[in-house]
Amino acid sequence: MFDFLEGYDVLGAFWTTVQLTLLSAVGSLIWGTLLAAMRVSPVPLMRGFGTAYVNIVRNIPLTVIIVFTSIGLADIFRVTLGAADDFEALSFRLSILGFVAYTAAFVCEAIRSGINTVPVGQAEAARAIGLSFTQVLWLIVLPQAFRSVIGPLANVLIALTKNTTVAAAIGVAEAATLMKEMIENEAQTLAIGAVFAFGFVVLTLPTGLFLGWLSKRLAVKR
């Protein structure tokens, strides 16, 4: 029944998807947190940059961003990311750069809404014992903000997992690329679609359930 899978490395393709997701998730979590810190900072220039970044980047289609990393950054500006002669590695790294740039805008907004759930008295008490702005943010506000937005961040992570299929546009050998190839070569198009749909559900469903459980467990009691 599943003999149409023979000769294709489905697991390998999904492994690339997982790698794209995890690396982009870590990158966008870091960059998104920094953006959120900028957006609440007392320095007007930083606030302005954060706001402009989020509003521009989240409104550009992801496909445009990913294609730009390839034909813009790589072909025109000669960005090599340490992989000048290896086309596969280069597209892989470029796509992660694009995913981080894009997803960070959503991570930033999730975290910023979390910051708004932390009572202002928490920051006041922290300032009153002599902590600096950065210390107040990293030691008191962000840890509480993170715990309150694990749910929304899970949504962003699930969206990111599925968004990695856009990397097919610049030839990264992930799940969607393989699916397209198989549909061209095999007759069982419906079954192929079902296999890949199932593969993504296998990746994202446990993620959502686990993070849902974690968000309950880590909720800050007031």
Binding site: Q144, V220, K221
Partner: peptide
Amino acid sequence: VFQSFNLFAH
């Protein structure tokens, strides 16, 4: 010392 205590909740 504040009216609403403001202990660090986490």
